[in-house]
Design a protein around this nucleic acid. Structure first.
Lengths: 235, 235
DNA sequence: CGCTTAATTGACCGCGATCAACGCTGGTGG
DNA sequence: CCACCAGCGTTGATCGCGGTCAATTAAGCG
């Protein structure tokens, strides 16, 4: 971890644009910006955290370790996302781990300053509530997906989620590089099954891969698989 | 739905005890208390809601309908829980349905009064953030469970969750009556599989059933089966 | 260029979903 | 209060998805 002397303009981010001048000064004193290389662990399950992190740049994988060594990825957090805010208010230990997937710049805000903002800035509180509520909705959807959909359907859906969040370049290459194992852990399956499904999708001309880059060739085709194949099983 | 003329003392509930006198008066004017018989639908997926509900008494099932007709139960909400608050802030339509499982008394608070509280009472906001964050943690845990554990393990876990939330009488009878189908939809499986596992647990002397009542005979035995990891891993 | 880690493919098998048939029960009306 | 019957509970048979194990190939990386 390398501390930074570069000044980031935090105001460009919605959450911090809600602070008044006095609060902005306080934030500037409180905040700590750091850079993390790919592969770095930001925090581990069970740690006691003294603040939350705001992602200025890069991608951070949020996950839980299961019993059998398999890990479940709960979120691929990117620019503008906040992580580790969940265990702040009740001072619990972290129930997830966070690992850097793509070199990241993080802004740490202390527990106490977060509390100060919650208690003094209703617009900030409101935004935090919005964020947590939105995430709750996503989690609910995901829960139903995992229970009721097949690996093939979920894989198509995860690829679309990644496309939506990280977009692709002009050649269709997803702007996030993930291993097959991480893809599998997002989908909620094992690497081998993910690979089989991915090869299937490739042979159908929906996706492609060059080295570790993933290409999305036919988003609407993936959408059909993610949503409509539920009907297939009924016919 | 029957409107009530009975006065409930809302102050006994943590969330409302945070209001000052002026806000309490406002709440009294805004709130609408109603009674719902078992089987009633409180709201449906896709509805636009104009407020949230606070459960004064009874049990309400929160669920989503999947593609194949199977529904996934996301929560059995009881006394003191709030429901439908999720879609309040961004004015989205509801992404879940709510059905009364055990005759219920609900207190509806309007969208606008909720907003007023968020904007004026930091302690209220803070409590809402606490609640949403806690629920997020539960959802995360549940997600990993569903993906990584067997139906048998999840069944044991769901029974323990019900025991924890609704407790049992002196004979070990769970103070919530659920059909096998609802149990299955909590676990995330089909009725037949749930029944097979339940019979198995009964033959092992861990649980029993009399009519629609469920008896928990050996909680620690269930814990072993559920492989409750959270604590173990931290030691 | 060697070495570690990731990706891929094949064989196998068990869990759990599905379909079907039947017993049970509690809530409702007569 | 009792009879009825729709909905709930239970069991059996079957089958395919997806997890596990094993072995080989490809790809990063110092």
């Amino acid at each position: 971890m390398i501390l930074s002397r570069i000044e980031y303009d935090l105001n460009q981010f919605k959450l911090f644009s809600l602070l008044n001048e006095f609060e902005s000064v306080g934030l500037n004193e409180d905040k700590m910006i750091s850079f993390h290389k790919r592969g770095t662990i930001v925090y581990r399950e069970g740690c006691r955290l003294s603040g939350f992190y705001f992602i200025l740049d890069g991608i951070v994988k949020i996950y839980k370790n299961g019993l059998n060594g398999r890990q479940q990825i709960l979120n691929m957090a990117g620019r503008g996302d906040i992580i580790a805010y969940r265990s702040l208010l009740d001072n619990e230990t972290s129930c997830t781990s966070a690992k850097v997937i793509s070199d990241a710049a993080l802004c740490r805000v202390s527990h106490s300053f977060f509390k100060y903002l919650i208690e003094n800035n209703p617009r900030f509180s409101k935004e935090i509530i919005k964020i947590t509520c939105k995430e709750l909705g996503i989690k609910n959807d995901y829960l139903v997906n995992v229970v009721q959909k097949s690996v093939r359907e979920r894989t198509a859906e995860v690829l679309l989620l990644l496309l939506d969040k990280f977009s692709m370049d002009k050649n269709g290459v997803l702007q996030i590089r993930v291993t097959r194992e991480d893809l599998a852990n997002m989908v909620g399956t094992v690497t081998e099954s993910l690979i089989r499904v991915f090869s299937e999708l490739r042979s159908e001309g929906l996706v492609d891969s060059e080295g570790r880059n993933i290409k999305i060739l036919n988003p609407s085709g993936l959408e059909q698989i993610a949503k409509l194949s539920g009907f297939k099983n009924r016919i």
